[in-house]
Structures are given as structure tokens and as C-alpha cells.
């Protein structure tokens, strides 16, 4: 059923530097979370992606959000049906 999604997230996890990945549905519910990503983050990630899009309403493209800390960073992007969050370590 969702095996293909699991495979895909595993493929993302295998990329260099990636330590976590999570996929969230359009309601902010967790579809899958791997590595340091937690299902707890789903709603927040989805909401951050939502709010980021409204920072520049004239811009119709969906922005990539990057949050940076000393240890690593997080990339978040939303499409109509889902939000993807990728965590990378430096």
C-alpha cells in the first residue's frame, strides 16, 4: 500500500548528510517519519510551510523553508497534497 512511499523516504535517507525525513499529509498528519524526524513534528512542519507561502502572496511558487541551527538544518516544502521535511547534519 504505502510501500512505495517508504522506499522513497529510505532513498532520501540514504542521501549524504540526511539524518531525518518526514512526510506529512495536507491536514498536518504524519504519513511517515524516519531518523531524527518525529511524528510529533508533523503539524508544526505543515504549519510552517503554510505560513511561509503567505510571506510573499504575490509569489505563486511554493517556497523552500530552511531552518538552521549550529548542528544541522531542516528543509521544508509543501505541495497541495503533502509537506516534506528533510533534516541534514553539517
Amino acid at each position: 500500500m504505502e510501500a512505495q512511499l517508504e522506499d522513497q523516504l529510505n532513498a532520501i535517507m540514504a542521501r549524504p548528510g540526511v539524518v531525518g525525513v518526514t512526510c506529512v499529509d495536507k491536514r498536518g498528519l504524519c504519513l511517515s517519519a524516519k531518523g531524527i524526524a518525529s511524528p510529533n513534528m508533523s503539524g508544526v512542519l505543515s504549519s510552517i510551510a503554510d505560513q511561509a507561502r503567505k510571506v510573499d502572496p504575490a509569489n505563486s511558487s511554493s517556497p523552500i523553508v530552511r531552518l538552521e541551527s549550529d548542528q544541522g538544518y531542516c528543509l521544508v516544502q509543501k505541495r497541495s497534497d503533502f509537506t516534506l521535511g528533510i533534516f541534514k547534519k553539517y
Partner: peptide, 24 residues
């Protein structure tokens, strides 16, 4: 006004979630 605490130095290996247990 969000809160997203993340532990990048988690003790579990990055591949911990790879066994497909965590699917929501």
C-alpha cells in the same frame, strides 16, 4: 510563533527508522 525542537545529536543511529516501523 511555532516551536520545533530537534535533537540532531540523537543517540539512535540515523538509520533507526529505516526498518519501516514508523509510518504514522
Amino acid at each position: 510563533s511555532h516551536s520545533l525542537p530537534v535533537d540532531f545529536n540523537t543517540s539512535s543511529s540515523p538509520t533507526a527508522g529505516l526498518n519501516g516501523d514508523v509510518n504514522g
